[in-house]
Every structure is written in C-alpha cells, then in structure tokens.
Design a protein around this nucleic acid. Sequence first.
DNA 1: CATATTTGACCCTC
DNA 2: GAGGGTCAAATATG
Length: 285
Amino acid sequence: MSGVCPHADTTARKKRIFKDLLAGRDLAVQLQDILSDPHPSSADKADEILGKILWSFTQGISALSSFEAKGGDPLSWESPGENKLRQGEKGRGCYKRRRGSHSWTAVNSAIEDVYSWRKYGQKEILNSRFPRGYYRCTHKHDQGCKATKQVQRMEEDPNMYQITYIGQHTCREISRAPKMIPDSDPWEFKSPESQIRNHHENGPINPFPCVKDEHKDDSGSDLTDCASGFNQDWHDFPMIPSMASDDLPLWSFSDDGLQSFSNMSFLDGCISFDGDFQFAGSDHL
DNA sequence: CATATTTGACCCTC
DNA sequence: GAGGGTCAAATATG
C-alpha cells in the first residue's frame, strides 16, 4: 500500500460496499413490487432482479471480506487466529480452522436450503447425543466456492437442527428449487413434520427461521434467543435472510467486526460495526 | 460410470 | 492430549 493513503482506500471501499448494499436494497424493493403483481411476465423479471440482488450482496460481502485481506482493518471478518495456520503445508488434515471466521447460525427444522451441499464428514461431538454433519458447497472445486455448513441436530428438540453457515458462497449457481443432496446420516431423518414445515402450500422454505449470533460460546446452549418471525419472502437466499418487508430479520455474524443488523434501515443511515467502522451515509455516495 | 456418502485417519487449535 | 475440522479411499447409489 505504499504511496496510497490507507484511509482513502478504506473510504473508497466503504463507499463501494455501501453502494452494493444499497443497490441490493433497491432491487429488493423492485422485486417486492413484482411479486405483489401476479402478472405472468413478472416471473422472468423477478428472476432477473433476483440475480442482480444476489450479485450486489455478494459483491458487498466480498468487499467487506477484502478488508481482511488488506489487514489491520477493524472490520476484519477473520479472527486473528485464522492467520496462524502454517504456510505452505498441504495435504490431509491441513485446513483453516473456521472458528471465528465469518459465520452465522440458523435453527431450522430441515437442513435443506437453496444451495447444493455435499457432505464431507461427520463427527461425534462431545456431550452431544447427535453427530455433527459437515457440508461444503458442491461448487467448491468447479467454482472455488468456500462456503461450508455444519449441521447439528439439537438435543432440546430433535426435530430442529442448528445449522452453522461458514463463509460466503462465491459460486453463482443458485438452484431456484430447493435442492439438497440427500443426506443419509443415521440421525438425519426426514420427518414428515420437517417436510411440512418447510414446504407448506406454495410455502417458501425459510432457510433462516432463526439466526443467532455465533459469537458465543460453542456450547450451543443458548439457542432460544431467536429473532422472531422471519418474513418468508426471501426464502431463496440463505445468505440473505428475508428482508423484503417490515418484518425484517435480525441476523448477525460471528466475526469480530460485524455485530448485527436489526433491520435493513441501516442502509438509509449508517451501519454500525464493532470498532470504528461506519458508513458515513447515503448522501456521501 | 459419475457423483454422493461413509468413515477412519490425519492434523490443527486449545 | 482432547476435541474438532478436513481429507480421501472405499462404498453406495442412480
């Protein structure tokens, strides 16, 4: 970064992020209008806008993540420990521990969402009756998508699953129809109730009926403080919890920087992050 | 045969 | 050293 004022660089990035997020919000509004209009030609338009929204948020998220790559920014989404792994080591068992990385947890009665996941492991977890399933994006290799998720059946309610999403989908393939690679975990039963809950008449799947702050202890014992009532309009975006109405979600991340969004109104004002990261406001664009 | 899952081993963090 | 995350060979499935 020699010769370039780091603050100027940061400001430009913030503006870019804000612009991306704002564009996403605007597109969401457009989509909401379209969805409220049952005209047949609306479907294609909705699809198009959907793609744009996803792209806007992906770009924004990507830009936020890039702060980490620059290093030293309080917005860093990766924990300091993330960089501790040894360089140059390859091979079996060599991995980045995801703890503290950009992740969030949802509680759902089904593990399906709109992305294609491939199971790559399962582990018995201490003090847990049920094993934890490990999934990575199907497009990990063909598109380099780094998104993973962990699925843990909840002891308190075996019909529910705690799903931890780690990392962002960088793949652009979203299957509009919910598709989940069949999971054959012995504990992974496809309960009728689960299916009903997530496919209720024309009913969209809500990938995030409950999203909690991951930045807590790992016990998973405080899962009851869920944000109430996600609107289901945004069912197609696991990465973008429903946000198309006033009944907006609370979603937050485990990273050390981003705390929480109580609703999307932050787009009109400023986003408050942990540390001193703040957007100046839309009029600064 | 291509693709997904299972499962034990490996190796990292704490 | 325990616990947990990932790899990859073996196996299953369509």
